[in-house]
Design a binder for these strands. Structure first.
Lengths: 205, 205
DNA sequence: GCAAAATATTGCGTGCACGCAATTTTGCGT
DNA sequence: ACGCAAAATTGCGTGCACGCAATATTTTGC
């Protein structure tokens, strides 16, 4: 039974997320004060921090939750015959390849603003849970902690790909003279995830 | 050529780290104001934030840097014959098993305080660089981005192990009734890293 | 229905992070 | 030794995160 209490909480949470995202998109992420987000959602500024622990978190939360559900569905939706590594990698790459409606603009803004990027990297942890769940759904015999580890590794690899994409040219420490022109983000994601395929396939046995 | 300028900067940085760690250990991490750390290091509070972007960062930085160097050395120091997965996993497990002087107390404090834990997780990224360097040192033929991805995956797995250790009992979402008594941290780290061994070994070929 | 327990919201005070501009310190050429 | 340019330090103002206690609201037991 979903009481009125929980529904109201969810409603204000979504109102805050929506207001934060809208204001950030139309004014730029640096020109939005929490006071304004709270006012747009009809709550006090203090209440905002009962739901989100930073100014950026509300902006990022909506996108992250959306992507988590989408990714988990994509993993479970792959044909059962293919290998786990292929299924996971294809799902993640597809999630970065999809236009996915308006989400495109939001992702660009997040990638552009350093503060939003940092916050997004933190909240990528949220995706690990659903992803691990999808993995065990495909292979019930797998150990839950193994699934969590693999999900975390996938998230970390995606972060590296994002760094590569933003950096443009990669100059690894003590590896001078290496300049790699950054391609499209989905390609970078696939390249970054490929080294993890053996671990994913091995865990599925 | 190391000018006086850079040496002085490094000196104040280390002074801030040392002061922060000492004060946190003797008073508890919550009872230290940045004003006191700055005063102990002989700089203004504003200057503190020119070196560290949060109150906890100075406390964690010393430990993290120490561990980064130690871990990289441990990886390169393993005998050349054994597999990459074994070398990396043993090195990481050993780094968590070593008493390592006074570092023990600092690690316990970091694990206990939620704020310090979060900051530590953020700075684990620092270790990825040296670890990736050590990996390419062992296997020069490996792709630098692959090395970075593997290092990031190792860091993520270590984070999962730390979560398991702190949680005590693991109750994965939608997996009710599962209670796993948490063993020693090194054992948990080894368990968490083991699923990544195939990826490490495959990359070395 | 109603009182009481449980929970959410709000205001307030404190400490923190950081942009900006002024000031001091350092490095280098002459 | 001197002076100038580059860079580090500092003070200040603003917005933010959060503990705490008071208040308002929903749920529960009767």
């Amino acid at each position: 039974m979903t009481g009125l209490r929980e529904r109201k909480k969810q409603a204000t949470r979504e109102a805050l997320q929506a207001a934060a995202l809208r204001l950030a998109l139309e004014r730029g992420p640096g020109n939005v004060r929490v006071e304004e987000i709270a006012e747009a959602a009809g709550v006090s500024p203090r209440t905002y921090n009962n739901y989100f622990s930073s100014r950026e978190q509300a902006i990022v939360a909506a996108v992250a939750a959306d992507r988590a559900a989408h990714l988990a569905g994509a993993v479970t939706g792959r044909p059962a015959g293919i290998r786990l590594g292929e299924a996971v990698i294809d799902a993640v790459v597809a999630s970065y390849h999809d236009p996915e409606d308006d989400e495109q603009g939001a992702l660009l803004m997040i990638a552009t603003s350093p503060a939003l990027r940092a916050c997004y990297v933190d909240t990528v942890t949220t995706i690990e849970g659903p992803l691990a769940g999808a993995v065990v759904a495909r292979h019930p015999g797998i150990d839950p902690v193994t699934a969590r580890v693999l999900a975390a590794a996938v998230g970390a690899a995606a972060r590296i790909a994002l760094q590569q994409w933003l950096h443009g040219t990669t100059t690894p420490p003590s590896m001078p003279g290496f300049v790699v022109p950054s391609g499209s983000l989905p390609d970078l994601v696939r390249t970054a995830l490929t080294p993890l395929a053996p671990a994913l396939d091995a865990a599925a046995a």
